[in-house]
Design a protein around this nucleic acid. Structure first.
Length: 888
RNA sequence: GGGAUCGUAGCUCAGCUGGGAUGAGCGUUCGCCUCACACGCGAGAGGCCACGGGUUCGAGCCCCGUCGAUCCCACCA
C-alpha cells in the first residue's frame, strides 16, 4: 500500500486490490455463532443468463450497505448469495445458440440438451457473480448457491411432495396461458397486457327453424371454429325467445345452442357472446356451467388443427383473414369496427398468448395464501414503504391457482411418475423403485418441469439447508430483510412468504425493503430495445464503484423510481475525491505516534464543536439506517464531511497548526482530526467501501490505528454523552455566523482578499466575548482579517466602520477608506427593513391570543426568544445608521 | 373499470408523526490557481411548495375536489 496518498483520488486498480484483500482475509464469511446476534439477507438470485444492469447495481448496493452497517454494529452478518437457473430465459438462450450451431433441442434430445445446458451454466453462469464483486458486494461467497444445485433440488421435490400429499398440488385440465413460440404454459403473472389496435368483427349466425339471425361481435373471429354455444343474458328481452333454440355454426355446420348466462353484459355490443370454451377463460367457465362440449382448434404452435376442417394447418392470423372473408362471402359479416383492446403477451418473447385447455399441474392457493396475507396484515412482515401493502393485498385477495408445470427441459423436473404397467400416478421426492400399486418397475417421469419461481419461492430456507435441520437454518432463519424491486411482488415476494409460512411455519423475513426502477436521464425505462441502458461496469471503470454506489442511494427514498445521470455520478466521484484530499491533509499534519488524546483542557471550542457535530451525525445517521432511510443517511454523511469537517473544521485548524506552537493544542487538533476522520470514514464505509478502506488503512499504518486490519470489521461509531459539547458548539456557531457575515460584506463591497483589516467584535454578553477571544486567531484567519479584538463598548474611532450585526455580536471593520459610506448606509437600511419585517411577523404571532393559548409552550417560548434577538439586532442596526448618517 | 405514485429553485430530486422554504446536487452570477483538493475555495441570484376549497392558532405536509404526468392490476366479447 502506498505510503502516502496520491494527489488525486483514482479508484482504478485500488478497488480490485482491496476486494481481493477482503476475500483473502475471509471477512465476508459468517459462521453460526450463538454468542452473537445474526443478521441475514438472502440475495435475490440473479439469472445465470444475466448481465449486470443498473437494477442489479441498485439492489446489490442497498443490500451491501445494510449488511456492512450491521456487520460493523457487531451483528453476525450473513449475506447469502446465489444464482437462479431462470428456466425459460436460459432455455431460450441455449436454443438460440444451438440454432447458430445448426442443431436444435429436438435433435439433441432431452439428455443431450441438459448436458449442453449445464456446460453453458458452467461457462457463463459465473459471469454475473463476478460482476457483483466489482460493486464491492460483501456476500459470503463460500455459501454460494444455485437454484438447481443438489440441495435446492431436494427442497423442491420435498415441497412438491408435501403439497401433493396435502392435496394442494393437483393435476387438471384447465384453461391456461399458452405461448405458441416458447411452446409452454405460463402463469398469469407472466402474461403482460399490451394495448393493441384491432377490430371488432360483427358476425351473425342463422337461428335454426326461423328466418332470424343472431348477431354478435368478436375480436377473434377465427375461434368460431371452436364455438359450442351462443350466450345471451337471461333477462335480455331481445333474445328471451331464442334461449334454448339452436343456431347453425357456419363453415363447420355444427348446430349449437343459445344459452342464457349472467356473464353476458347486455350493454356491450349486441348483448350476444359466442362461446368458445376451448380458447377463452370466460367461455371455459360458461361451458362448464352449461355442460357444453369443448373443441380445441389449435395446435401447440398456434396453427389450426384438424378440428378446423379446411383451415387445418393454417396460422391463427392467416385463418382469421380467411374466415372473415368466407363469412363475408356468405353474407354473415355485418360490419368491421376499429377497436383497441388489451392483448395478453408473453413477458419473455412478446408473443400473443393463446388461452387453451391443457392438462397441467397447479398449486391450490386458497388456503396457503391465508397466513401470507395475515402475516403482512398483522405486521409479522413489514413492507417498506408501507404503501406496498396495497399492491400486495390486491394480489392476495384475488389469487388464483398457480399453474406450475412448464413444457421446458431446463428446470426442476416434476417429481411425478406414471406406472407403465397399471397407469398409477406416483409422486415422491425421490424416484420410486417400483409401483406401489402393482409393483411394476417401469415408471415414466412426467416430462414437464416446474415454473422457475417454484424454486425461488423456497430460496430463504433452501439456501440455508432445508429440508435438513441444519445449524444454519436454525440460526440464520428467518432472515432479516429482503431487498427487491416492487415489480416483483407477485412473482416472488408473495410466493416466498406463503412458502415460508407453510414449510417453515415462520415468516421468511422480517422486513421487505422495496426500491424502484433506475431510469435514464429522461426518465425512461432502461431497455435493450431503446438502447438507453447504462452499463454499471462502464461507470465503475470510469468513476469507481464507490461513486456508482453513492449515486444510486442518494436523493432517493424506498419504493421510488430514480433517474440516473452522469452529472450525479460525477458529483459522487468528486465527493470521494474530497474525502481523499481531506485525508491527505490530515496525514500530512499528523506525525507518527503523536495522536494520543491530550488533557481535555487542550481542546479548543472548535475541537469541541466538530466533535459535537460528529456526535450528532452519528446518532442521526444510525437512526436513519435503522429505519432504512439510506438516502437521508448518505446525505447527512455527505454534508457533515464536506461542510462541517472540510469547509469549516479543517480551515479552523490550519491557523492553529501553522501559526502557533502550543504543543498540547496541536495535539488536541491532531487527535480531533483523526478521531473525526476515522468516525466519518466508518459512517461512510457502507456506502463507499473502497475509498474508506484505503484511507482507513493508510491512516492506521501512518499514525497507528485502532487495531483493526480493515474498516469493515471495525466497530460502528457510537453516540457519546461525553462529546455533547452543546455550549461550545453553540458559541462556535455564533462565530461562524459572524465570519459568514464578514465574508458576505467583503464580497458585496468588493474588498480585495489581500486586504486584511483588524476586526473588532462587540458584544454585551461576557460569555460571547470570551468565546470570540478564545478563537480570535481562527476567527481572524477565516474572516480574512489580520486580527480580532473583543470589546464591550464601541470605540469612537470605529464610528465610520463597516459593521456586521449578528444575534449575539456586532463585528466592526475599519474599511471606511475602501467602502463608500453611502453604500454602507444603503446596505444597513436594507438589513433594517428585513429585521423590521421579521419583528412584525413575530409580533403578529405573539399578539395572537389563540396562538398563545393553543400552541405548545416551547413554540411560544421559541418565538419570544426570536423576537428578543430581532429586537436587539434591530436596535443595533438603527444605532449604526444614526451614527453613519451623522458622519456624512 | 379499480388501485398506486408523482407535480417544491432553470434541471434532477430531499423534506423526519403540521411550527418561519438557512434544503441538496448540477447549472448559473461575482471574486479567488489561499501551502488537502480547480473533481476546488468564498459570496450571491433563483421557489404564489400544480390549482381550488376545507380542518387548524398555524398546512409543502392532513381532508375533499380539479388539472397534468407515470405505473400496476382487471376475463367485457
Amino acid at each position: 500500500m502506498a505510503k502516502e496518498l496520491d494527489k488525486t483520488y483514482r479508484p482504478q486498480g485500488m478497488e480490485d486490490r482491496i476486494y481481493r484483500k477482503w476475500i483473502d482475509k475471509n471477512y465476508f464469511h459468517a459462521e453460526v455463532d450463538r454468542t452473537k446476534t445474526p443478521f441475514t439477507i438472502v440475495i435475490p438470485p440473479p439469472n445465470i443468463t444475466g448481465k449486470l444492469h443498473m437494477g442489479h447495481a441498485l439492489d446489490e448496493t442497498m443490500q451491501d450497505i445494510l449488511i456492512r452497517f450491521k456487520r460493523m454494529q457487531g451483528y453476525n452478518a450473513l449475506w447469502q448469495p446465489g444464482t437462479d437457473h431462470a428456466s425459460i430465459a436460459t432455455e431460450v438462450k441455449i436454443i438460440e445458440k444451438l440454432k447458430e450451431e445448426g442443431t436444435s433441442k429436438e435433435e439433441l434430445g432431452r439428455e443431450g440438451f441438459l448436458k449442453r445446458a449445464w456446460e453453458w451454466k458452467k461457462e457463463y453462469g459465473g459471469a454475473i457473480t463476478e460482476q457483483l464483486k466489482k460493486l464491492g458486494s460483501s456476500c459470503d461467497w463460500e455459501r454460494e448457491r444455485f437454484t438447481m444445485d443438489e440441495g435446492c433440488n431436494r427442497a423442491v421435490n420435498e415441497v412438491f411432495l408435501r403439497l401433493y400429499k396435502k392435496g394442494w398440488i393437483y393435476k387438471g385440465a384447465k384453461i391456461v396461458n399458452w405461448c405458441p413460440v416458447c411452446q409452454t404454459t405460463i402463469s398469469d403473472a407472466e402474461v403482460e397486457y399490451e394495448t393493441q389496435a384491432s377490430h371488432l368483427w360483427h358476425i351473425k349466425y342463422p337461428v335454426i327453424g326461423t328466418d332470424r339471425f343472431i348477431e354478435f361481435a368478436t375480436t377473434r373471429p377465427e375461434t368460431m371454429l371452436g364455438d359450442t354455444a351462443v350466450a345471451v343474458h337471461p333477462e335480455d328481452e331481445r333474445y328471451r325467445d331464442l334461449i334454448g333454440k339452436k343456431v347453425l355454426l357456419p363453415i363447420v355446420n355444427r348446430e349449437i345452442p343459445v344459452v342464457a348466462d349472467d356473464y353476458v353484459d347486455m350493454e356491450f355490443g349486441t348483448g350476444v357472446v359466442k362461446i368458445t370454451p376451448g380458447h377463452d377463460p370466460n367461455d371455459f367457465l360458461v361451458g362448464k356451467r352449461h355442460n357444453l362440449p369443448l373443441v380445441n382448434i389449435m395446435n401447440d404452435d398456434a396453427t389450426i388443427n384438424e378440428n378446423g376442417g379446411k383451415y387445418a394447418g393454417m396460422d391463427r392470423m392467416e385463418a382469421r383473414k380467411a374466415i372473415v372473408k368466407e363469412l363475408d362471402g356468405m353474407g354473415l359479416l355485418v360490419k368491421i369496427e376499429d377497436y383497441t383492446h388489451d392483448v395478453g403477451t408473453h413477458d419473455r418473447c412478446g408473443t400473443t398468448v393463446e388461452p387453451l385447455v391443457k392438462d397441467q399441474w397447479f398449486v391450490r392457493m386458497d388456503e396457503m395464501i391465508k397466513p401470507a396475507a395475515e402475516g403482512v396484515r398483522n405486521g409479522d412482515i413489514r413492507l417498506v414503504p408501507d404503501r406496498m401493502k396495497k399492491t400486495y393485498f390486491n394480489w392476495t385477495d384475488n389469487i388464483r391457482d398457480w399453474c406450475i408445470s412448464r413444457q421446458l427441459w431446463w428446470g426442476h423436473r416434476i417429481p411425478a411418475y406414471t406406472c407403465d404397467d397399471c397407469g398409477e400416478l406416483v409422486v415422491d421426492s425421490v424416484r420410486p423403485e417400483k409401483c406401489p400399486r402393482c409393483g411394476g418397475v417401469h415408471l415414466t417421469q412426467d416430462p414437464d418441469s416446474l415454473d422457475t419461481w417454484f424454486s425461488s419461492a423456497l430460496w430463504p430456507f433452501s439456501t440455508l439447508g432445508w429440508p435438513e435441520k441444519t445449524e444454519e437454518l436454525d440460526y440464520f432463519y428467518p432472515t432479516d430483510v429482503l431487498v427487491t424491486g416492487y415489480d416483483i411482488i407477485f412473482f416472488w415476494v408473495i410466493r416466498m412468504i406463503f412458502s415460508g409460512y407453510e414449510q417453515m411455519g415462520e415468516r421468511p423475513f422480517k422486513t421487505v425493503l422495496f426500491h424502484g426502477l433506475v431510469r435514464d436521464e429522461l426518465g425512461r425505462k432502461m431497455s435493450k430495445s431503446l438502447g438507453n441502458g447504462i452499463d454499471p461496469l462502464e461507470i465503475i471503470e470510469k468513476y469507481g464503484a464507490d461513486a456508482l454506489r453513492f449515486t444510486l442511494v442518494t436523493g432517493n427514498s424506498p419504493g421510488n423510481d430514480m433517474r440516473f445521470s452522469y452529472d450525479r455520478v460525477e458529483a459522487s466521484r468528486n465527493f470521494a475525491n474530497k474525502i481523499w484530499n481531506a485525508s491527505r491533509f490530515i496525514l500530512m499534519n499528523i506525525g507518527e505516534g503523536k495522536t494520543e488524546k491530550p488533557d481535555m483542557s487542550a481542546f479548543t471550542d472548535a475541537d469541541k464543536w466538530i466533535l459535537c457535530k460528529l456526535n450528532d451525525t452519528v446518532r442521526e445517521v444510525t437512526d436513519n439506517m435503522e429505519k432504512y432511510e439510506m438516502g437521508i443517511a448518505a446525505g447527512k454523511i455527505h454534508d457533515f464531511i464536506w461542510d462541517f469537517f472540510c469547509d469549516w473544521y479543517i480551515e479552523m485548524v490550519k491557523p492553529r497548526l501553522y501559526n502557533t506552537d502550543d504543543e498540547s493544542s496541536h495535539q488536541a487538533a491532531r487527535w480531533t482530526l483523526k478521531k473525526v476522520l476515522t468516525d466519518a470514514l466508518k459512517l461512510l464505509h457502507p456506502f463507499m467501501p473502497f475509498v474508506t478502506e484505503e484511507i482507513y488503512c493508510t491512516l492506521s499504518e501512518e499514525t497507528g490505528g485502532e487495531g483493526y486490519d480493515s474498516i469493515m470489521i471495525a466497530p460502528w461509531p457510537a453516540y457519546s454523552d461525553e462529546l455533547a459539547f452543546r455550549k461550545e458548539a453553540g458559541d462556535i456557531d455564533y462565530i461562524r455566523e459572524a465570519i459568514r457575515g464578514v465574508r458576505n460584506v467583503r464580497a458585496q463591497m468588493n474588498v480585495a482578499p489581500s486586504k486584511k483589516p483588524e476586526l473588532t467584535v462587540f458584544s454585551e454578553e461576557e460569555e460571547v466575548r470570551e468565546a470570540f477571544l478564545k478563537e480570535s486567531l481562527m476567527t481572524a484567519a477565516l474572516a480574512g482579517a489580520s486580527a480580532v479584538k473583543v470589546t464591550d463598548f464601541v470605540p469612537e474611532e470605529l464610528s465610520d466602520a463597516v459593521s456586521v450585526v449578528t444575534k449575539h455580536a456586532a463585528v466592526y471593520m475599519p474599511l471606511a477608506e475602501l467602502v463608500d459610506i453611502g453604500e454602507e448606509i444603503a446596505r444597513l437600511e436594507k438589513e433594517e427593513g428585513r429585521l423590521k419585517g421579521e419583528l412584525k411577523r413575530s409580533d403578529s404571532m405573539l399578539h395572537n391570543e389563540k396562538f398563545l393559548s393553543r400552541a405548545p409552550k416551547e413554540k411560544v417560548e421559541e418565538e419570544q426568544r426570536k423576537r428578543g434577538e430581532y429586537e436587539k439586532m434591530l436596535s443595533e442596526v438603527s444605532e449604526r445608521l444614526r451614527v453613519l448618517r451623522k458622519e456624512m
